[in-house]
């Protein structure tokens, strides 16, 4: 864009020039003037050697730290131990060695650039404000001309067929997602609880009615193989104080066994474990979003984002005196979904 006359050089002239000279020439052709270029230190001087050693030292630091990282990663005692407390140094040591390794590379390159590469000042001619009128007109015309040459305005067949093809290609990107859409069947409606399934602790021992004191709460699982690992199985078994008045939900008046009530532990909001039980207020709290359920009203939500009661498990005591479920939950546990249906 500069109006300077272009220097003309013969091929032989170019071949005789050094790289530095060619660089300067190229810059001049682009309107850039290199005002001066100077080295910080005299090459081969004491200061130059020192700077070189500094940069090399940084790279060496990276090497040593990386080796240290690998050694620590592989051989340092990382397991928790009551007798050997060095485990607490494991993560910090990994962090420090990795930080030093990265720092070494970064600092080395910065020092190299600042201390050993020549300092240079260059000036480029720039114009102020808009481009010249002629430049603006010609650029706009070039764009319009290019569009006109494709014939997109005239050739409606191409325009439409391209739209059809590209549109189909877009659908192609969405179609595989359809495989992820699945209508829930039994897995969301049923859990492992069923008639006669015992309520067991984490270690698979069953519970008797005398095991909980009034005001007690215990997390129990379905007493079937894999029951303690099931995601939808955990149930809170709560024993109310004898003088607490219970207001059952419609249709589950007989779900309790004496003072004992059993609710799904999975919050009906987004499925956190709602196991904060306040024995004086009989509230069940969910720690994630502060939903509160009233155990005396069959876990009806009384505060927070949850809108449905925790599903209640009908329980009784079997012939051997252990707690058992009388059936599965009557409604799906956990957060809602479209096909869930409504339950009072």
């Amino acid at each position: 864009m500069t109006g300077e006359p272009q220097p003309t050089l013969a091929a032989a002239d170019l071949a005789s020039k050094s790289d530095a000279e060619l660089t300067r020439l190229g810059a001049t052709l682009d309107g850039v003037t290199i005002l001066h270029r100077e080295l910080r230190y005299e090459p081969g001087s004491k200061a130059d050697k020192r700077a070189e050693r500094l940069v090399a030292g940084c790279f060496l630091l990276t090497f040593v730290s990386t080796v240290a990282f690998i050694v620590i990663y592989g051989w340092f005692p990382w397991k928790f131990s009551l007798t050997d407390e060095r485990y607490y140094l494991y993560t910090p040591l990994l962090g420090v060695t990795m930080a030093l390794a990265l720092l070494g590379v970064g600092a080395g390159i910065v020092f190299w650039g600042k201390l050993l590469i020549p300092h240079e000042t260059a000036v480029q001619e720039r114009h102020d404000g808009y481009s010249d009128e002629i430049d603006r007109q010609t650029v706009a015309a070039t764009l319009r001309d290019g569009l006109d040459m494709t014939g997109v305005a005239r050739r409606s067949l191409l325009k439409r067929s391209l739209g059809l093809g590209a549109g189909a290609l877009g659908v192609l990107a969405i179609v595989p997602l359809g495989g992820l859409v699945k209508k829930p069947k039994g897995e969301l409606l049923h859990t492992q609880w069923a008639d006669g399934v015992r309520l067991v602790r984490l270690d698979n021992t069953p519970l008797r009615p005398e095991d909980l004191r009034p005001g007690g709460m215990e997390t129990v699982f379905p007493g079937v193989p894999g029951g303690t690992r099931s995601a939808d199985g955990p149930v809170m078994l709560i024993r109310l104080y004898p003088d607490v008045q219970r207001i059952p939900r419609t249709g589950q008046a007989d779900y309790n066994w004496g003072d004992y009530l059993a609710f799904s532990k999975i919050c009906t909001h987004v499925g956190c474990p709602t196991s904060l039980y306040e024995q004086e207020t009989n509230k069940i709290l969910c720690p994630c979003h502060q939903s509160q359920f009233d155990a005396t009203q069959d876990a009806k939500p009384i505060f927070g984002p949850a809108t449905r009661a925790l599903p209640m498990l009908p329980i009784t005591v079997d012939a051997d005196g252990y707690f058992v479920a009388r059936s599965d939950f009557r409604e799906p546990i956990g957060p809602a979904y479209w096909e869930r249906g409504n339950y009072d």
Binding site: L82, E210, L212, R213, G215, G216, M217, Q279
Partner: peptide, 27 residues
């Protein structure tokens, strides 16, 4: 079970288990 803490009677968490919990927590 002071105040709102549920009661963990000896039939629910045995004395040995209570001691184990204390050991874990204090450690």
């Amino acid at each position: 079970g002071p105040e709102n803490m549920p009661v963990f009677g000896d039939n629910q968490i045995s004395p040995e288990e209570k001691r184990a919990i204390i050991s874990y927590l204090q450690t």
